[in-house]
């Protein structure tokens, strides 16, 4: 038992570091590792992974908030989309064709991976002109980039398309059980014109909220097994604190280099899931 505890704990640290650096929940690491590596039932793995998303978000947010990488105003604006989307997703589950959705979202992710690859060399974006809502809600932000050694001021644009994407990302999370952060980072980075590090930190901040209602449900159903979730969540918490400190000192172009393969992998995996039953 002690050996399993240690292994699961180490797995948690790894997932926490990766999740915090990239603004993802780490589910793509935890779920396959627990089901394939430790022969755990899918429900137990998904429930543990949902609590881990909260751990990643909470552990990393402290450092990101202090460094002002997290844009709390953008986060709350977009959380309206993810939270209502997740609700819609939960209500529609069982009524919609999952295969089609997997393919649709897979293609979307593949496109955003391609887009990120095209702009991989950019360390910062061209001037972004804020739209009316962004100005009215004062969504712009600024932070001190420790990797570049200077202050980055940025504007936010296309607030409504961003909100709509978040709604669908929330619905996808509710319907397909995936995509804690994988849609959020590209939406802010590529659509709304936010710097990559601010997008990642803000996504990280938001995923905890999206995961919380799901986690409560898993708890109520008894799917959260303390002996599985305990060590992995503790590992993720520690990993996320470390990952956040690392990320703050990393260049955006380098973090993107890690993000792209994960994006491409998830895209392929989703399309495969949609196609394989045909």
């Amino acid at each position: 038992m002690v050996i399993t505890f240690i292994l699961v704990f180490v797995l948690g640290i790894l997932a926490g570091v990766v999740g915090a650096m990239l603004g993802l929940g780490g589910g793509i690491i935890i779920v396959p590792a627990l089901t394939l590596g430790f022969n755990m039932p899918m429900r137990t793995a998904v429930a543990a992974s949902t609590v881990c998303i909260i751990a990643t978000s909470t552990g990393a947010a402290v450092a990101f908030l202090r460094d002002r990488l997290t844009n709390t105003r953008v986060a709350i604006w977009l959380e309206m989309g993810t939270a209502t989307g997740a609700l819609t997703g939960a209500l529609l589950a069982g009524w919609v064709n999952q295969r089609l959705l997997f393919i649709l979202f897979g293609v979307l992710l593949a496109y955003s991976a391609y887009n990120m690859f095209r702009t991989r060399k950019e360390e910062h974006k061209k001037e972004v002109t804020p739209d009316a809502i962004s100005q009215r809600l004062r969504l712009k932000g600024s932070y001190y980039d420790k990797a570049l050694g200077r202050r980055i001021d940025y504007q936010v644009s296309r607030t409504i398309p961003g909100l709509i994407i978040m709604y669908f990302s929330g619905a996808a999370a509710g319907l397909l059980g995936i995509g804690a952060g994988i849609f959020k980072v590209p939406a802010m980075d590529q659509v709304m014109g936010m710097p990559f590090k601010a997008s990642s930190a803000t996504s990280n901040f938001m995923i905890g909220v999206t995961a919380a209602s799901g986690a409560v449900v898993y708890f109520a159903r008894g799917d959260v097994k303390p002996l599985v979730a305990g060590p992995v969540v503790l590992g993720v918490l520690i990993g996320a604190i470390l990952g956040a400190r690392l990320m703050v000192h990393m260049k955006a172009s380098k973090i993107r280099l890690f993000f792209m393969p994960i994006l491409a992998y998830t895209a392929i995996e989703m399309i495969y899931k949609g196609v394989k039953w045909w």
Partner: peptide, 15 residues
């Protein structure tokens, strides 16, 4: 352990 997980779960809500 369950208590610890519940505290963690409560933080985003409190946030």
């Amino acid at each position: 352990i369950t208590a610890g997980l519940l505290v963690l779960l409560g933080t985003p809500v409190m946030r």
